[in-house]
Nucleic acid binder design. Structure first.
Lengths: 159, 159
DNA sequence: GGACAATAGTTGTTTGCACAACTATATTCT
DNA sequence: AGAATATAGTTGTGCAAACAACTATTGTCC
């Protein structure tokens, strides 16, 4: 009784164990990424949007296409793009042919930011996962893909 | 040029690929869990706190010990416990021996909620990951543990 | 035993996320 | 051509997370 117990919380199932490990691991690695993005005044979601736009550059991309390709879906896409526009990292245009669309393109500023962040980010990824060998990394990526496969909506092919 | 390109965003490194897969997979599976917790007016963080308290029950646990064992660290522990206390799922006491501490214990209500949620949650985990076989699940859990190992502070042994 | 430091929580503030309701534009169907 | 429907974004609101500054209590050490 009086003894300071250090009981561990057992898992209820193997599936739960995997899920909690997934959560914890994501959380730990995310914290490292935030050390890269935070000081540069950008979130990792915003970075991924810029990355997507750069991949399509110089073609612009409609707002909701971006939203659908985001890793973590954000109904807040408008306000997020607002911030990127204020920082003049992106540009919005409303084409005359279809005035419902708002087309987004990355600016020179945006491309420069991507460029500046590339090396520190690569180093961050190295710190995050560089201790695993390529075989383990491939295996992990593959298992993660299988894990979420039944839960992916088609058409939403991010990255 | 005029052609509707459907360019995919390439990964800059294997590590980045794994990290983005981790993020996406976590996000997809989390959405499923929220379907279980949301309607019951509890978050998965709160659930994990109750689970921790139940594992120690009837011994109470100090506030910051809980905070340190949480999967995703929350500086917001006080306000989170406020909500659990209002829902009378936990109880707070300030021991006379050390009045800095606030000891938390789970109530009958809290234990009942855990009980009610156990089956639907188990079914959710089954939906999340039941399509992987036990060998794959073990392998995934193991790779996830290795992945975050260098980033775990000792002493913060969650679960 | 009184100043200083360490421990344990709390509160303030800002930003991000989620859900839903809303506006504007284009397409379809009779 | 005009009503109904579908598409594309935007805005309102409430809740949760992140970071830092603050209070209260206890322990340490001349």
């Amino acid at each position: 009784m009086g003894k300071k117990t250090n009981k561990t919380v057992e898992f209820d199932s193997l599936e739960q164990e995997v899920y909690l490990n997934l959560w914890r691991t994501y959380d730990r690695l995310r914290a490292l990424e935030e050390d890269v993005f935070g000081p540069r005044g950008i979130t990792s979601q915003q970075y991924n949007v810029l990355r997507l736009l750069a991949a399509h550059h110089p073609e612009p991309v409609p707002t909701l296409t971006i939203a659908n390709r985001m890793i973590s879906k954000s109904p807040d896409i408008t306000r997020m793009l607002d911030k990127l526009e204020i920082a003049s990292l992106i540009l919005r245009t409303r084409p005359a042919e279809n005035r419902r669309l708002v087309l987004i393109s990355v600016t020179k500023n945006g491309l420069d930011l991507l460029n500046d962040i590339a090396l520190p980010l690569k180093q961050c990824h190295e710190r995050q996962l560089g201790h695993l060998n390529p075989r383990e990394l491939e295996q992990l990526a593959s298992l993660l893909r299988s894990a979420r496969k039944p839960h992916e909506e088609e058409k939403k092919l991010w990255s």
